[in-house]
Simulated scan of single mutants.
Amino acid sequence: MNITELISPQRVVARLGTTSKKRALEQLAELLAGHAPSLTPEEIFDSLIGRERLGSTGLGQGVALPHGRLAGLTEPLGAFASLDPAIDFDAIDHQPVDLMFALLVPAESTDEHLQILADLARRFSDKGFTEDLRHAATGEELYQRFLTQDARQRESA
């Protein structure tokens, strides 16, 4: 799977200024809703926050992968934001989060959902990759780093 199959340059934001987990999820929901006309930002936010209530999706090392499944969605959809400043996300290592990748999948896509999450978690555990993301100043720079990461994945496969 290529990360760039899930995101687009319009759904990648650098240095998003937000002060809380809730507000960060709202902003990611707005980004996602702009590219999923059948869904509202409120529906997306409800899905993301509902999952967070089951347990934090903060993986540690400053990374969070909020995610949810929604009826009415026909294919997986993602959005990414680097945050400045980092926020408390109840992460497993109790460290603040500054990299967030939000993922939505169709309600019936349980296996695909888990496969995508596993791939994203593996990629975001690469310290070199996350440091590259942290040094990007614009959404376009972030998106280019995802393109580069996808190319590396294809070469190593």
Score class of each variant (00 low, 15 high):
Ser38Lys: 13
Thr130Glu: 13
Ala24Trp: 07
Thr19Gly: 14
Leu65Ile: 07
Asp111Tyr: 06
Ala79Phe: 13
Thr130Trp: 13
Ala33Thr: 06
Leu147Thr: 13
Leu114His: 09
Gln149Leu: 14
Leu70Cys: 04
Asp111Cys: 15
Phe129Gly: 10
Leu133Met: 04
Ile44Gln: 03
Ala118Val: 10
Gly78Glu: 01
Pro76Met: 11
Arg69Ile: 05
Arg123Gly: 07
Asp119Arg: 03
Gln61Asn: 05
Phe124Met: 01
Leu39Ile: 07
Lys21Cys: 03
Ala121Ile: 11
Glu52Met: 06
Gln149Trp: 03
Ile92Lys: 05
Leu28Ser: 08
Ile7Asn: 02
Leu59Thr: 03
Ser8Leu: 08
Leu103Asp: 00
Glu131Ile: 14
Ile116Tyr: 11
Asp90Val: 13
His113Glu: 04
Ser20Lys: 12
Ala151Val: 14
Leu31Ser: 14
Ala24His: 01
Ser156Asn: 13
Ile3Trp: 05
Asp119Lys: 15
Leu70Gly: 06
Ser38Pro: 15
Leu103Val: 11
Ala36Ser: 14
Leu99Ile: 09
Ala64Tyr: 02
Ile87Gly: 01
Ala36Gly: 05
Ser109Lys: 14
Leu142Lys: 09
His94Trp: 12
Gly128Thr: 12
Pro41Val: 05
Ile49Gly: 00
Glu75Trp: 04
Ala91Phe: 08
Glu42Cys: 11
Ala151Trp: 12
Arg23Ser: 06
Phe124Asp: 03
Gly139Lys: 10
Ala71Glu: 08
Ser109Val: 12
